[in-house]
Simulated scan of single mutants.
Amino acid sequence: MLTNKINEILEEYDFTDSIITDMRWEKSLLDFSITIDYNFNLPENEMKTKDLKLVCKNCITINLNFARKSFDHIEPNQTNFYSWFTIVKYNFRKQDKDYIIELYTYEFDTPSISITCNSLELHRY
C-alpha cells in the first residue's frame, strides 16, 4: 500500500488525464476498487509501474453514471474507446467520518463515478 491518507493522495498524485482501466468489487463486497493507468511522474523512489489501484473500503454509496445513450452512437472502430474513461476532473474530500470520491470522465458537470466510503487506500498494481 502506498498510502491510506487522503492528504497524501491529494498532495502527491494528480489523476487528471489518467485512464480508468478496471472497476470491480473486492473480496469484501463492501470494498470497491478502481485501477488507474497513471499518466504523470510518480514521486521519487516510488514504483516503476504506472498502474495504481484506489480501493474504497466499506462503501456506503456508489453511483456509476455511464449513460448508455452516451455510448450508443459510437462504433468501436471509429474512436479511441479508452478516451471515454480518461479522468478529466476529480474531487476527493472528507465529510465527517466519510470520504467522498468523484471522478469525471466524459462530462465535466456530472461525475461518472461517485463513491462514499469509510476509508481509502492507494496501492501499486
Rank of each mutant, 00 (worst) to 15 (best):
F32V: 09
C59G: 13
F71H: 05
H73V: 07
L54H: 06
E12M: 05
L29I: 03
L29W: 09
L103T: 08
F15S: 01
I6N: 06
I19K: 09
E11Y: 01
L122H: 01
N4T: 08
N80F: 00
T86M: 02
T35R: 12
L52I: 15
S28A: 13
E12L: 05
E44D: 13
Y13C: 03
I19M: 10
Y104R: 14
C117G: 08
Y104S: 10
T16P: 00
S70R: 09
F66N: 04
D51L: 15
D96Y: 11
D37S: 13
K57G: 03
N7G: 00
L103M: 06
I9S: 01
F71R: 09
Q95P: 06
D51H: 11
I62C: 02
S119L: 00
C59Y: 01
T79S: 09
M47G: 11
N39L: 01
T110N: 04
H73L: 12
T110K: 15
D72V: 10
C56N: 14
T49Q: 07
E107P: 00
M1Q: 14
I113Q: 01
R93N: 13
E121F: 01
F81G: 06
E121D: 11
L54M: 06
L54E: 03
S112T: 12
K48G: 05
T21M: 04
T105W: 02
K48D: 11
E12R: 06
I6P: 05
K57W: 08
K97V: 07
T86F: 11
D109E: 10
D17M: 05
K50G: 14
Q78W: 05
E44K: 08
Q95T: 15
N63M: 06
E8F: 08
K57P: 02
L120C: 15
F15A: 04
F85Y: 15
L2K: 12
V55L: 11
F71N: 02
E11F: 05
L52R: 12
K5F: 15
E75M: 09
K89T: 06
I87S: 02
Y104I: 07
C56H: 12
T79V: 13
N39E: 12
N7D: 03
P111S: 14
D96W: 08
K97I: 13
T49F: 02
F32D: 06
